[in-house]
Amino acid sequence: MKKNVLFMTQAAIIAAIYVVLTMMVATVNLASGAIQFRISEALCVLPFFTPAAVPGVIIGCFLSNVLTGCALPDIIFGTLATAIAAVASYKLKDHRFLVTLPPVVSNALIIPFVLKFAYGLEGTIPFFMVTVAAGEILACVICGSVLITALMPVRKYIFTPSVTQ
């Protein structure tokens, strides 16, 4: 029972942080569009530490897309891209560097079609693949790696249930 509460609490906190970070970046118009840098995507590396990060980032992405006024296809397929990335990152949890790559690949393959067809942005699918991948590399590979490094010394306090539970 306490393990379920811990899981749900961790997932909810991760979702909330994702939303807050996305809303902050949205104020400077970097949360969506052809060139985007969602710092919240760095949280997609958290499956390295806990399976609760999988629903956490998925829910966080969904809520962020709704709250920032994304088009319905973006809400659906953007959340799907994050879900694929989160599950794949969890499957790669034993590989510190590889865990950062699924969000880059997933978003680079899915989001360009959303940008082109849901928003009608000028540009080609390959161009959008490059811009989306670049933003994901900055957020997930670079910032995500920094996040992993920062959390490593405290991971047992944050992500592991205490012995008394």
Score class of each variant (00 low, 15 high):
Leu46Val: 04
Leu30Tyr: 06
Gly33Asn: 07
Asn107Trp: 01
Val99His: 01
Arg38Thr: 07
Pro112Ile: 10
Lys116Trp: 03
Ala134Trp: 06
Thr27Tyr: 12
Phe128Cys: 10
Phe97Gly: 00
Ser89Ala: 15
Ala11Asn: 03
Ala133Trp: 15
Thr79Ser: 14
Met152Cys: 13
Ser145Phe: 08
Tyr119Cys: 03
Val99Tyr: 06
Thr68Ile: 14
Ser32Trp: 14
Phe48Ser: 02
Glu136Arg: 07
Val130Trp: 02
Leu115Thr: 06
Val54His: 02
Ser145Gly: 14
Thr164Asn: 15
Arg155Leu: 13
His95Thr: 02
Lys2Ala: 13
Ile148Lys: 10
Val20His: 09
Tyr18Lys: 03
Val87Phe: 14
Ala53Cys: 11
Glu41Pro: 02
Val57Phe: 06
Phe48His: 08
Leu80His: 12
Val66Pro: 01
Ala134Ser: 14
Ser106Phe: 01
Lys3Trp: 05
Leu121Ala: 13
Met24Phe: 15
Val104Asn: 04
Val99Gly: 00
Val54Gly: 07
Ile14Trp: 06
Phe77His: 08
Lys156Val: 10
Pro47Cys: 13
Leu101Phe: 15
Asn29Thr: 05
Thr79Tyr: 09
Thr149Lys: 12
Ala31Gln: 11
Leu46Thr: 01
Thr68Val: 14
Ala15Lys: 03
Pro103Phe: 04
Gln10Pro: 01
Gly60Asn: 10
Leu67Ser: 12
Val45Asp: 00
Ala88Val: 10
Ala53Asp: 06
Met1Ile: 11
Glu122Arg: 05
Asp94Met: 08
Thr79Ala: 09
Thr100Gly: 04
Val5Ser: 11
Leu21Thr: 09
Ile59Glu: 01
Phe127Lys: 04
Thr149Asp: 10
Thr9Leu: 11
Ala52Lys: 02
Met1Ala: 14
Cys70Gly: 02
Ile58Glu: 00
Ala34Glu: 05
Leu80Pro: 01
Leu21Asn: 09
Ala42Ile: 01
Asn29Cys: 08
Met24Arg: 09
Thr149Trp: 12
Leu109Val: 11
Asn65Tyr: 05
Leu67Ile: 11
Pro112Lys: 09
Pro55Leu: 07
Ile58Asp: 03
Pro161Ser: 14
Phe117Met: 11
Gly135Tyr: 03
Met24Leu: 15
Leu147Ala: 02
Leu80Glu: 01
Val25Cys: 12
Ala83Gly: 15
Asn65Gln: 06
Leu6Asp: 03
Cys44Thr: 07
Arg96Cys: 05
Leu147His: 01
Ala11Arg: 00
Cys143Thr: 05
Val146Leu: 15
Gly56Arg: 04
Gly56His: 02
Met8Ala: 15
Ala150Ser: 07
